[in-house]
Write a protein that binds this DNA or RNA. Sequence first.
DNA 1: GTCAATGCAAACGATTTGCACGATC
DNA 2: GATCGTGCAAATCGTTTGCATTGAC
Lengths: 134, 134
Amino acid sequence: MQKVQELRMTRQRRIILEELRKVDTHPTADQLYLCVRDRLPRISLATVYRNLELLVREGLIQRLEFGGTRKRFDGNPEGHHHLRCLSCGEVRDASGHIPALQRVARSSDGYEITGYHLELTGYCACCRKDKDDS
Amino acid sequence: MQKVQELRMTRQRRIILEELRKVDTHPTADQLYLCVRDRLPRISLATVYRNLELLVREGLIQRLEFGGTRKRFDGNPEGHHHLRCLSCGEVRDASGHIPALQRVARSSDGYEITGYHLELTGYCACCRKDKDDS
DNA sequence: GTCAATGCAAACGATTTGCACGATC
DNA sequence: GATCGTGCAAATCGTTTGCATTGAC
């Protein structure tokens, strides 16, 4: 009989989750590793990677399906959209809803649409100011 | 005075472009490498990578900003949307336009929106059939 | 003939894995 | 006390780069 694997709440796992939930940028594994190391100096990067994958599988966090070579993680498990600044590269949450989307999608040839990923790109307030100054 | 670098049309470059335009899936560099090698058995993977980047810079093809660890390339240089099948993983073009999008985006806090990436996920006609059979 | 482009191999950065030890239940 | 999770180091994967040679113009 198949034993369901139990999930132990280790110090490392708890602190990784806490730190990820604390920020509203969507850090890469090693950005998060740096934060976590302030509280757990002996933690290894491999542990961060392992726990992030595990938390994704548990549905407690999300892995962003976008951009660049590095994976980014999101402490908010709900579906939502993102804004990526083309200047500083940071990714923040976009509020609001895009209601027509699912309907549009359903018209495409034979696909059964179950979801979508949306990333808006542009310049954040901060970087726009820098641009205007120069 | 700055000399503009000229772009030589080598056999490799031409064939890479031809093979990429031939397919409507959006291959990774090494998927394309396999196709191209049928016609140029001595080509190296590095050449494929170098030319893909170059063709992106020239605006002749697009690099997809989505999904997974591997880069994917698109022979169609026009902006358009994609459908990714959650079962077979293939990425195909989605027809249609999502008109309200830019307007919605502009309301978000201080961002100047210049574009967006949209990927729909679901099951392609082929994989839906497999699901129904089983 | 010049200089960009190639093929090869080695380097690289991000992520994953094997293994002995440590910690949670 | 069993076994899951950790830290460390080595392995792996996708991609990039250095360099001597080749080929397009």
